[in-house]
Computed example of a mutant assay.
Amino acid sequence: MKTFDPIPENQNKAEEPLTEYGVYSYADYLTWEFDEMVEIIKGKIFKSAAAAPRRIHQKISGNVFNKLHNYLNGKPCDVYDAPFDVRLPAKSKRNEDIFTVVQPDICVICNKSKLDEFGCIGAPDLIVEILSPGNNKKDLQNKYEVYEESGVKEYWIIQPYELTLLIYTLNDGKYIPSKLFTVGDVVTSTCIQGFQLDLEEVFTDLD
């Protein structure tokens, strides 16, 4: 998440773009200062609908992150939670040629050559997004498309108010949806061998 800082007069920082209808790259993104989360999907700016995620969103995110973090401790994969920039280049990895930069709620990267000081460049193995009021279309349509095209092996979508989890698994370049999981189910991952997630524990103590 990019946060606003007073910009010294001699610092070459851009003002917030006047329009959200241009085509922007990661090079543009690096010059901006926003007071809310900003992502670029295929060159288009997407802002967070709220200043901060709601409490239930954060509680679920923490539950899932902790399970992944504990399981992956000592293993070759790394797990990160937002704010964490994931750049998804279509062709060139030059900043000027990258038109999708997202901040997934949680992501797992097993190929550490994709990690640098700025985050991840290339598709994570697993991405978890937790829906919030106002961002459903972004996660269910726009991000679905770029994650599929970029080769994210698994895309997990959690609906916090319905207490459900849907897993999209990449198969021959196309996502195949799972059944809709809910409290009482234990889910597994095809790309993180041996990992199990008990949804009873994910959706506990949300009130």
Rank of each mutant, 00 (worst) to 15 (best):
E33H: 10
N63L: 06
P104T: 01
H57E: 12
K42T: 05
A82N: 11
E96Y: 08
K13S: 14
E96T: 09
T19N: 08
V101R: 02
V23N: 10
F99P: 13
N66S: 09
T182Q: 09
M1V: 11
S92Q: 04
A27N: 12
M1R: 15
P76Y: 15
Q159A: 09
I98W: 00
V38T: 09
D185H: 15
K91S: 15
D205Q: 10
T169L: 05
Y71K: 10
M37C: 12
S48Y: 11
T182H: 12
R94A: 12
S92E: 11
P133S: 01
D185M: 15
G119K: 08
Y175E: 07
I176H: 12
I176W: 06
Q193F: 11
E129H: 06
Y80D: 04
S132Q: 07
G134Q: 12
C77Y: 05
T100D: 09
Y155P: 00
I121W: 09
F84I: 08
F34S: 07
V146K: 13
L18K: 05
W32L: 01
C120Y: 01
W32R: 06
L170E: 13
I157A: 00
W156C: 04
C107Y: 05
E149A: 13
T204W: 10
E39I: 08
Y175W: 02
N66A: 15
I106G: 00
P177T: 00
E148A: 09
Y24T: 08
L170H: 04
H69K: 15
G62H: 07
T19D: 05
Y26L: 13
V128T: 03
V202F: 01
N10C: 06
S178V: 14
L68G: 00
K174W: 04
G151C: 07
M37W: 12
I56A: 07
R54C: 12
K67I: 05
E154C: 03
D205F: 05
V187H: 07
C110H: 02
Y26R: 02
R54Q: 13
D172C: 08
E15Y: 15
C110M: 07
C77A: 14
D85E: 06
E201V: 14
T182W: 02
N135L: 13
D85S: 08
M37I: 04
D97H: 12
G22V: 09
E117Y: 07
I41N: 03
L206R: 06
K143S: 02
E96D: 13
V79Q: 11
Q193A: 14
Y21S: 14
Y21Q: 08
T190A: 13
A52E: 06
S92H: 07
S92C: 09
D35Y: 04
P83A: 11
K114G: 02
S150W: 05
N95V: 06
L115I: 12
L115V: 13
G43L: 05
T188G: 14
L206S: 10
L165S: 01
Y175G: 11
I60C: 06
S48G: 10
D125M: 01
I109H: 03
D105S: 10
L166I: 15
D198Y: 01
H69D: 08
M37F: 03
K138H: 07
W156S: 04
P160H: 02
L165N: 00
D97E: 09
E201A: 06
I56E: 15
H69I: 08
L165W: 00
R54S: 14
T19R: 11
L72S: 06
R94N: 15
D97Q: 04
